[in-house]
Amino acid sequence: MTPTMTTAARLAGLPAGLDLAAADGEALHPEAAAESPLSIRGLTVSYGEKPAVFSVDATFPDGALSAIIGPNGAGKSTLLKAALGIIPRLSGEVSVFGRPIDAARARIAYVPQRASVDWDFPTSVLDVVSMGLYRRLGLLRRMRSEERAHALACLERVGMTDFADRQIGQLSGGQQQRVFLARALAQGADLYLLDEPFAGVDAATERAIIEVLKSLRAEGRAVVCVHHDLSTVESYFDHVFLINVRRIAEGPVASTFTAGNLQATYGGRLAAGHIEQLRLGGGTA
Protein backbone atom coordinates (compact mmCIF):
# COMPACT_ATOMS: atom_id res chain seq x y z
CA MET A 1 0.00 0.00 0.00
CA THR A 2 2.50 2.56 -1.08
CA PRO A 3 2.09 5.42 -3.52
CA THR A 4 4.02 3.43 -6.10
CA MET A 5 0.99 1.19 -6.45
CA THR A 6 -0.41 3.89 -8.64
CA THR A 7 2.38 3.30 -11.11
CA ALA A 8 1.94 -0.44 -10.95
CA ALA A 9 -1.72 -0.09 -11.71
CA ARG A 10 -0.98 2.22 -14.60
CA LEU A 11 1.64 -0.02 -16.06
CA ALA A 12 -0.94 -2.79 -15.92
CA GLY A 13 -3.11 -0.58 -18.07
CA LEU A 14 -5.86 0.06 -15.55
CA PRO A 15 -7.75 3.31 -15.94
CA ALA A 16 -7.36 5.71 -13.05
CA GLY A 17 -10.87 5.09 -11.78
CA LEU A 18 -10.24 1.38 -11.30
CA ASP A 19 -7.03 1.95 -9.42
CA LEU A 20 -8.49 0.83 -6.11
CA ALA A 21 -5.22 -0.15 -4.52
CA ALA A 22 -3.90 3.36 -4.96
CA ALA A 23 -7.07 4.84 -3.57
CA ASP A 24 -6.65 2.67 -0.48
CA GLY A 25 -3.06 3.73 -0.19
CA GLU A 26 -3.98 7.35 -0.29
CA ALA A 27 -6.55 6.81 2.41
CA LEU A 28 -3.93 5.20 4.63
CA HIS A 29 -1.29 7.82 3.89
CA PRO A 30 -2.96 11.19 3.56
CA GLU A 31 0.34 12.83 2.57
CA ALA A 32 0.48 10.60 -0.48
CA ALA A 33 -2.57 12.30 -1.91
CA ALA A 34 -0.64 15.55 -1.93
CA GLU A 35 2.12 14.09 -4.09
CA SER A 36 1.93 16.13 -7.23
CA PRO A 37 3.51 14.70 -10.40
CA LEU A 38 5.58 17.86 -10.54
CA SER A 39 6.05 20.23 -7.67
CA ILE A 40 8.46 23.17 -7.77
CA ARG A 41 9.45 25.36 -4.82
CA GLY A 42 11.35 28.63 -5.01
CA LEU A 43 12.94 27.96 -8.40
CA THR A 44 15.28 30.68 -9.61
CA VAL A 45 17.31 30.42 -12.83
CA SER A 46 19.60 32.98 -14.37
CA TYR A 47 21.58 32.98 -17.60
CA GLY A 48 23.27 36.29 -16.89
CA GLU A 49 22.68 38.88 -14.26
CA LYS A 50 18.91 39.12 -14.57
CA PRO A 51 16.97 36.01 -13.55
CA ALA A 52 14.95 34.35 -16.33
CA VAL A 53 12.80 32.59 -13.74
CA PHE A 54 12.50 34.07 -10.27
CA SER A 55 11.41 32.28 -7.12
CA VAL A 56 8.69 30.25 -8.79
CA ASP A 57 6.40 27.84 -6.98
CA ALA A 58 4.27 25.48 -9.01
CA THR A 59 2.22 22.38 -8.35
CA PHE A 60 0.81 20.48 -11.30
CA PRO A 61 -2.13 18.14 -10.76
CA ASP A 62 -2.17 14.42 -11.57
CA GLY A 63 -4.34 12.97 -14.30
CA ALA A 64 -4.77 16.37 -15.90
CA LEU A 65 -3.65 18.49 -18.84
CA SER A 66 -1.83 21.59 -17.65
CA ALA A 67 -0.64 24.59 -19.67
CA ILE A 68 2.28 26.86 -18.91
CA ILE A 69 1.41 30.22 -20.40
CA GLY A 70 3.30 33.47 -20.72
CA PRO A 71 4.72 35.87 -23.29
CA ASN A 72 7.88 35.16 -25.33
CA GLY A 73 10.92 35.15 -23.12
CA ALA A 74 8.80 34.73 -19.98
CA GLY A 75 10.93 31.77 -18.90
CA LYS A 76 8.53 28.96 -19.80
CA SER A 77 11.14 26.75 -21.47
CA THR A 78 13.64 27.70 -18.79
CA LEU A 79 11.20 26.59 -16.10
CA LEU A 80 10.81 23.15 -17.68
CA LYS A 81 14.51 22.70 -18.37
CA ALA A 82 15.56 23.77 -14.90
CA ALA A 83 12.91 21.56 -13.30
CA LEU A 84 14.40 18.62 -15.24
CA GLY A 85 17.96 19.55 -14.35
CA ILE A 86 18.82 20.19 -18.01
CA ILE A 87 20.13 23.61 -17.04
CA PRO A 88 21.48 24.50 -13.61
CA ARG A 89 19.30 26.37 -11.15
CA LEU A 90 20.40 29.00 -8.69
CA SER A 91 17.98 27.79 -6.06
CA GLY A 92 14.82 25.80 -5.66
CA GLU A 93 13.48 22.35 -4.98
CA VAL A 94 11.82 20.06 -7.49
CA SER A 95 9.97 16.88 -6.68
CA VAL A 96 8.35 14.42 -9.05
CA PHE A 97 5.66 12.23 -7.53
CA GLY A 98 7.05 13.21 -4.17
CA ARG A 99 10.60 12.10 -4.92
CA PRO A 100 13.74 13.91 -5.98
CA ILE A 101 13.96 14.26 -9.75
CA ASP A 102 16.91 11.91 -10.18
CA ALA A 103 14.99 9.12 -8.49
CA ALA A 104 12.00 9.67 -10.75
CA ARG A 105 13.55 10.02 -14.21
CA ALA A 106 12.06 6.76 -15.42
CA ARG A 107 8.58 8.26 -14.89
CA ILE A 108 9.23 11.45 -16.88
CA ALA A 109 9.08 12.03 -20.62
CA TYR A 110 10.33 15.35 -21.96
CA VAL A 111 9.62 16.71 -25.44
CA PRO A 112 11.96 19.63 -26.16
CA GLN A 113 11.10 22.49 -28.47
CA ARG A 114 11.30 21.14 -32.01
CA ALA A 115 13.80 23.80 -33.05
CA SER A 116 16.25 22.69 -30.37
CA VAL A 117 17.68 19.83 -32.44
CA ASP A 118 19.35 19.47 -35.82
CA TRP A 119 16.84 17.67 -38.03
CA ASP A 120 19.59 17.03 -40.56
CA PHE A 121 20.98 14.45 -38.16
CA PRO A 122 21.51 11.13 -39.96
CA THR A 123 18.81 9.06 -38.33
CA SER A 124 15.43 7.56 -39.14
CA VAL A 125 12.02 8.13 -37.59
CA LEU A 126 11.93 4.71 -35.93
CA ASP A 127 15.45 5.29 -34.62
CA VAL A 128 14.38 8.49 -32.88
CA VAL A 129 11.38 6.76 -31.32
CA SER A 130 13.68 3.97 -30.13
CA MET A 131 15.72 6.54 -28.23
CA GLY A 132 12.74 6.57 -25.86
CA LEU A 133 13.62 2.98 -24.97
CA TYR A 134 17.14 3.80 -23.82
CA ARG A 135 16.43 3.45 -20.13
CA ARG A 136 15.05 -0.02 -20.80
CA LEU A 137 17.75 -1.14 -23.25
CA GLY A 138 20.82 0.29 -21.57
CA LEU A 139 24.17 0.41 -23.32
CA LEU A 140 24.37 -2.77 -25.31
CA ARG A 141 21.24 -4.90 -25.22
CA ARG A 142 19.79 -5.31 -28.68
CA MET A 143 16.23 -4.29 -29.35
CA ARG A 144 13.97 -7.33 -29.21
CA SER A 145 11.06 -7.76 -31.55
CA GLU A 146 8.54 -6.76 -28.86
CA GLU A 147 10.45 -3.54 -28.25
CA ARG A 148 10.45 -2.82 -31.94
CA ALA A 149 6.75 -3.52 -31.98
CA HIS A 150 6.29 -1.14 -29.04
CA ALA A 151 8.15 1.63 -30.88
CA LEU A 152 6.02 1.02 -33.97
CA ALA A 153 2.86 1.10 -31.85
CA CYS A 154 3.91 4.51 -30.51
CA LEU A 155 4.37 5.70 -34.09
CA GLU A 156 0.95 4.32 -34.90
CA ARG A 157 -0.56 6.36 -32.07
CA VAL A 158 0.65 9.57 -33.70
CA GLY A 159 -0.25 8.36 -37.20
CA MET A 160 3.35 8.13 -38.45
CA THR A 161 3.75 4.40 -39.14
CA ASP A 162 4.26 4.95 -42.85
CA PHE A 163 7.27 7.13 -42.16
CA ALA A 164 9.21 4.73 -39.92
CA ASP A 165 12.21 4.50 -42.25
CA ARG A 166 12.30 8.13 -43.37
CA GLN A 167 15.21 10.33 -42.49
CA ILE A 168 13.89 12.84 -39.97
CA GLY A 169 14.97 15.83 -42.07
CA GLN A 170 12.56 14.74 -44.78
CA LEU A 171 9.49 15.40 -42.67
CA SER A 172 7.28 18.44 -42.29
CA GLY A 173 7.38 20.37 -39.04
CA GLY A 174 4.16 18.75 -37.89
CA GLN A 175 5.47 15.27 -38.66
CA GLN A 176 8.67 16.00 -36.75
CA GLN A 177 6.63 17.08 -33.75
CA ARG A 178 4.66 13.82 -33.90
CA VAL A 179 7.89 11.83 -33.97
CA PHE A 180 9.02 13.65 -30.83
CA LEU A 181 5.71 12.81 -29.18
CA ALA A 182 6.06 9.15 -30.22
CA ARG A 183 9.50 9.04 -28.61
CA ALA A 184 7.96 10.34 -25.39
CA LEU A 185 5.21 7.71 -25.60
CA ALA A 186 7.85 5.01 -26.02
CA GLN A 187 9.24 6.00 -22.62
CA GLY A 188 6.02 4.88 -20.98
CA ALA A 189 6.18 7.73 -18.49
CA ASP A 190 3.61 8.98 -15.96
CA LEU A 191 4.50 12.65 -16.38
CA TYR A 192 4.83 14.25 -19.83
CA LEU A 193 6.50 17.62 -20.18
CA LEU A 194 6.15 19.17 -23.63
CA ASP A 195 7.64 22.44 -24.82
CA GLU A 196 5.34 24.13 -27.36
CA PRO A 197 4.09 20.92 -28.99
CA PHE A 198 1.66 22.88 -31.16
CA ALA A 199 4.11 25.50 -32.41
CA GLY A 200 4.36 25.59 -36.20
CA VAL A 201 2.34 22.43 -36.82
CA ASP A 202 -0.50 21.91 -39.31
CA ALA A 203 -4.11 21.59 -38.17
CA ALA A 204 -4.18 17.80 -38.64
CA THR A 205 -1.11 17.40 -36.47
CA GLU A 206 -2.57 19.66 -33.81
CA ARG A 207 -5.67 17.46 -33.67
CA ALA A 208 -3.60 14.28 -33.59
CA ILE A 209 -1.41 15.58 -30.78
CA ILE A 210 -4.27 16.80 -28.59
CA GLU A 211 -6.03 13.48 -29.05
CA VAL A 212 -2.95 11.64 -27.82
CA LEU A 213 -2.57 14.00 -24.87
CA LYS A 214 -6.20 13.53 -23.92
CA SER A 215 -5.81 9.77 -24.12
CA LEU A 216 -2.82 10.04 -21.78
CA ARG A 217 -5.02 11.99 -19.37
CA ALA A 218 -7.66 9.29 -19.67
CA GLU A 219 -5.01 6.78 -18.61
CA GLY A 220 -4.50 8.90 -15.51
CA ARG A 221 -1.19 10.42 -16.51
CA ALA A 222 -0.13 14.02 -16.01
CA VAL A 223 0.67 16.22 -19.01
CA VAL A 224 2.25 19.67 -18.80
CA CYS A 225 2.60 21.74 -22.00
CA VAL A 226 4.22 25.05 -22.63
CA HIS A 227 1.48 26.61 -24.73
CA HIS A 228 1.28 29.81 -26.73
CA ASP A 229 -2.16 29.82 -28.32
CA LEU A 230 -4.53 31.50 -25.89
CA SER A 231 -7.57 30.67 -28.01
CA THR A 232 -7.27 26.92 -27.38
CA VAL A 233 -6.44 26.98 -23.68
CA GLU A 234 -10.01 26.45 -22.51
CA SER A 235 -10.78 23.61 -24.89
CA TYR A 236 -7.49 21.75 -24.37
CA PHE A 237 -6.48 22.21 -20.75
CA ASP A 238 -7.73 21.64 -17.22
CA HIS A 239 -5.13 23.60 -15.33
CA VAL A 240 -3.07 26.69 -16.16
CA PHE A 241 0.12 28.14 -14.83
CA LEU A 242 0.73 31.77 -15.81
CA ILE A 243 4.30 32.99 -15.72
CA ASN A 244 6.28 36.06 -16.57
CA VAL A 245 9.63 35.46 -14.90
CA ARG A 246 7.63 35.21 -11.65
CA ARG A 247 4.56 33.14 -11.11
CA ILE A 248 1.46 35.20 -11.89
CA ALA A 249 -1.31 32.71 -11.16
CA GLU A 250 -1.99 29.00 -11.09
CA GLY A 251 -5.14 26.92 -10.86
CA PRO A 252 -8.06 25.38 -12.73
CA VAL A 253 -8.70 26.95 -16.12
CA ALA A 254 -12.19 28.05 -15.19
CA SER A 255 -11.09 30.15 -12.24
CA THR A 256 -7.53 31.12 -13.25
CA PHE A 257 -7.61 31.81 -16.98
CA THR A 258 -9.20 35.23 -16.53
CA ALA A 259 -8.81 38.56 -18.26
CA GLY A 260 -7.27 40.03 -15.13
CA ASN A 261 -4.61 37.32 -14.84
CA LEU A 262 -3.79 37.51 -18.56
CA GLN A 263 -3.41 41.27 -18.29
CA ALA A 264 -1.02 40.73 -15.38
CA THR A 265 0.95 38.11 -17.34
CA TYR A 266 1.23 39.87 -20.68
CA GLY A 267 1.11 43.48 -19.47
CA GLY A 268 0.81 45.85 -22.39
CA ARG A 269 1.82 43.12 -24.84
CA LEU A 270 -1.68 41.74 -25.10
CA ALA A 271 -4.12 44.30 -26.39
CA ALA A 272 -7.43 44.58 -24.60
CA GLY A 273 -9.05 43.54 -27.86
CA HIS A 274 -7.34 40.16 -27.78
CA ILE A 275 -8.58 39.44 -24.32
CA GLU A 276 -12.02 40.60 -25.36
CA GLN A 277 -11.95 38.06 -28.20
CA LEU A 278 -11.25 35.25 -25.79
CA ARG A 279 -14.56 36.11 -24.09
CA LEU A 280 -13.21 35.53 -20.65
CA GLY A 281 -14.26 36.86 -17.29
CA GLY A 282 -17.54 35.04 -16.86
CA GLY A 283 -20.47 35.68 -19.10
CA THR A 284 -20.33 36.24 -22.82
CA ALA A 285 -19.16 32.69 -23.64
Binding site: G85, I108, V117, Y134, L140, Q187, L193
Partner: peptide
Protein backbone atom coordinates in the same frame (compact mmCIF):
# COMPACT_ATOMS: atom_id res chain seq x y z
CA UNK B 1 30.67 0.43 -29.84
CA UNK B 2 30.07 0.38 -26.08
CA UNK B 3 28.91 3.99 -25.79
CA UNK B 4 27.11 4.07 -29.13
CA UNK B 5 23.64 4.79 -27.78
CA UNK B 6 24.54 7.53 -25.28
CA UNK B 7 26.81 9.13 -27.87
CA UNK B 8 24.12 9.10 -30.51
CA UNK B 9 21.32 10.29 -28.24
CA UNK B 10 23.31 13.08 -26.63
CA UNK B 11 24.70 14.22 -29.97
CA UNK B 12 21.23 14.39 -31.52
CA UNK B 13 19.24 15.85 -28.62
CA UNK B 14 21.16 17.06 -25.62
CA UNK B 15 18.09 18.23 -23.71
CA UNK B 16 16.36 14.88 -24.06
CA UNK B 17 19.58 13.08 -23.12
CA UNK B 18 19.85 15.06 -19.90
CA UNK B 19 16.17 14.53 -19.15
CA UNK B 20 16.55 10.75 -19.28
CA UNK B 21 19.53 11.02 -16.96
CA UNK B 22 22.47 10.52 -19.31
Amino acid sequence: VIFWRPLKISTFDEGFARAIGL
